[in-house]
Simulated assay, not measured.
Amino acid sequence: MLDGGIHLSLLIGPAVPSPAPAEVVDALDAVQVTSSTELGGFQLTFKAGRESGLVNRLLPSGYFDPIITRVILLVTVNGQTTVIMDGVITRQELTPSNEVGKSTLTITGEDLSRMMDLVEMPFMRFPAMPIIARVYLILAKYAAIGIVPLAIPPILPDVSNPLEALPSQTGTDLAYIKQLAKQVGYVFYIEPGPVAGMNIAYFGPDIRIPDPQPALTVDSDAATNVESLSFSLDGTMKKITVVTVMDPFTGKIPIPIPIPNISILRPPMGLRMPIPAKVEFVEGMAGLSLTDAANRALGILWNSTDSVTGTGTLDVLRYGRVLRSRMMVGVRGAGRTYDGLYYVNSVSHSLKRGEYKQNFNLSRDGLISNVSAVMP
């Protein structure tokens, strides 16, 4: 599927997906993929006429059955292959039409984190196990489907005395790991690739890969490689968060600690920082231990919000490669105020025959670039 130096590969099937047969590839009409800091998803639209093999043979045989059917999508642009989705089907919709060629079969799915959200554990205990050990123990169950854990221990140790408390899990594995991530200010997500069938389950601080992608260029005549790009500055996004902890000696005197809204893991990338517009007080921290409160405060410091955002659309063939989320990218042609480096928060892929476009969302903190030039 696709032309002009772009090739889409579709692997589908239970257990280990295999290349889709020709009749499936020929019937594929459109692909939508969303990649963000939360849950990734995909949607495949097929032409499904009355005499189609998809409707008469593959659909009844369970070829597109939810949960048990895995889908891997790879895109090759100018010889560079990228895994843009590895997930499972969650829904199928058949829409017959009285018009010739208008009947469609739509397959919707989510990334492999959905497999971690199917079984609720009644009451799983982890005696004397730190958070990092619990994360690795839970993720080990999913090695069979190609999930490789990459987990970073919390900065401060968190081992509890089994005589005083037993860490326990209720709910699904996904919900529990995200709960643990929230406790220490971390994020958890599953990133497909780098090869088909392999996925990285990341548990750690929200760090963006500091290797900038080729710049997004706007309003630059022949050098322009984006179809649209707009920026906004939200003056209400910056805030000072105040946490309250009890003094470690008596445990009775509340001590307010202001936390600035600047992430130490994600540099602002702007010279002129916006002024904080509001003050927020975090509840529920006074009863935490000193270690838990410190980890929670570090999480607030790491996950500060960005006040400058950008949204746009690009044609992948003109850009020359696939724009990836959770990485950095340069911007040029937007003027002195908004040029410079940004974080790519989310990307959605839209593929049709002869067309591959991406919608993207960018962010950074501060106006006016702090670098003299961006990557070509």
Rank of each mutant, 00 (worst) to 15 (best):
4 G>W: 12
16 V>E: 10
18 S>I: 08
21 P>I: 00
22 A>S: 08
39 L>W: 11
42 F>Y: 04
44 L>I: 02
49 G>A: 01
50 R>V: 00
51 E>R: 15
52 S>G: 01
55 V>R: 12
57 R>T: 15
62 G>R: 00
65 D>S: 15
66 P>T: 09
68 I>G: 10
73 L>A: 03
74 L>H: 08
77 V>L: 01
78 N>E: 11
78 N>Q: 11
82 T>K: 10
82 T>V: 14
91 R>A: 13
96 P>F: 07
98 N>D: 15
108 T>N: 03
110 E>V: 05
111 D>M: 01
116 M>N: 05
118 L>I: 10
119 V>P: 02
121 M>S: 13
127 P>Q: 05
129 M>H: 14
131 I>K: 01
142 Y>L: 01
148 V>N: 03
153 P>R: 11
153 P>L: 02
164 E>K: 14
171 G>V: 01
172 T>Y: 08
172 T>Q: 02
174 L>A: 07
182 K>A: 13
183 Q>K: 13
187 V>C: 10
199 N>H: 09
201 A>P: 00
201 A>G: 04
201 A>R: 02
204 G>H: 01
206 D>T: 02
215 A>Y: 05
219 D>Y: 04
220 S>P: 10
224 T>A: 02
226 V>N: 12
231 F>P: 05
232 S>Y: 00
236 T>R: 15
237 M>T: 13
238 K>G: 14
239 K>F: 03
240 I>G: 01
240 I>V: 11
251 G>D: 12
272 R>I: 13
274 P>F: 10
280 E>Y: 07
282 V>C: 02
284 G>V: 07
284 G>K: 07
286 A>S: 14
286 A>Y: 09
287 G>M: 07
290 L>G: 12
290 L>Y: 13
291 T>R: 05
292 D>F: 07
296 R>S: 11
302 W>M: 14
305 T>A: 14
311 T>Q: 10
314 L>I: 08
315 D>T: 11
321 R>L: 00
321 R>D: 09
327 M>R: 15
338 Y>V: 12
343 Y>L: 07
344 V>F: 11
357 K>E: 12
358 Q>C: 02
361 N>S: 15
362 L>P: 11
362 L>Y: 10
364 R>Y: 04
370 N>I: 11
